[in-house]
């Protein structure tokens, strides 16, 4: 078959608009995912049984369910909650918000496992030394243990960010116009260049992710 690549340049504004959505979801979900994930990890390691059990139940539940399901579920759930709290008009487009919430909460489960491993890799002597200096347990955690855990786990946290970036393509199930949907389902379908746009999207993802993971490897070699 003949490929027709001429549609890419004129459609760049649409495609970039999609990329903006993709990046929006990624950045917000990475930030909230790491923060909430760290809280979950600390909870998980708590000596109070009920707290540690709650964190464990949260993490394991999210790790059992496919992301596609979580996205659909939040699409359904978020409007109810939001309209309960903020009394939003029913017409508000909540797909983006629900996707961002879903990604943040979902990825937090994965980030929490990374952070838990990081915290556990710091010797217990570090926390004891902090306590001996008169710090509280919480102070010792965020002043001494967590900074070290972040440093050790930085490459893994970044790699998880790249996975998240790829996972955002699944907002396809919400018909949210991210980079992939915009390129393939909108531009590709309209211009009859479906095949070309699929390959184009594959190339863009490959270039971005390959560059990013090479960067992570470089950082890893610098830290080590």
């Amino acid at each position: 078959m003949e490929f027709d690549w001429s549609g890419i340049i004129p459609n760049l504004p649409y495609i970039l608009k999609g990329m903006k959505i993709t990046l929006q979801i990624t950045v917000v979900a990475v930030i909230f995912g790491i923060i909430w994930g760290t809280v979950l990890a600390v909870m998980r390691l708590s000596s109070i049984k009920i707290i540690s059990w709650l964190a464990k139940a949260y993490v394991n539940t999210f790790r059992t369910i496919p992301l596609v399901m979580v996205l659909l579920w939040f699409y359904l759930l978020v409007p109810q909650i939001l309209s309960n709290i903020f009394h939003l008009p029913a017409s508000t487009d909540i797909r983006l918000i629900s996707a961002i919430v879903a990604f943040s909460l979902f990825e937090a489960a994965y980030y929490s496992e990374i952070m838990r491993a990081g915290i556990q890799s710091i010797s217990k002597g570090q926390l004891n030394a902090a306590l001996a200096l008169g710090m509280t347990k919480i102070q010792g955690m965020y002043l001494v243990v967590l900074p070290q855990a972040f440093r050790i786990m930085a490459p893994l946290l970044l790699t998880q960010g790249i996975i998240l970036f790829q996972d955002t393509t699944l907002v396809y199930v919400l018909s949210l116009f991210d980079f992939f949907y915009q390129s393939v389902e909108i531009v590709g379908k309209r211009d009859g260049t479906y095949v070309e746009m699929i390959l184009f999207a594959a190339c863009v993802y490959f270039i971005i992710c390959f560059a990013a993971s090479s960067l992570v490897n470089y950082i890893k070699s610098r830290i080590a």
Partner: peptide, 22 residues
């Protein structure tokens, strides 16, 4: 590298819509 750096959904689309064409 090809499978690690391209999202799964795109692989699925490639196999269903692109591969048969080529």
């Amino acid at each position: 590298e090809i499978f690690r750096n391209i999202p799964l959904i795109i692989h699925l689309f490639v196999w269903v819509y692109v591969i048969p064409e080529i």
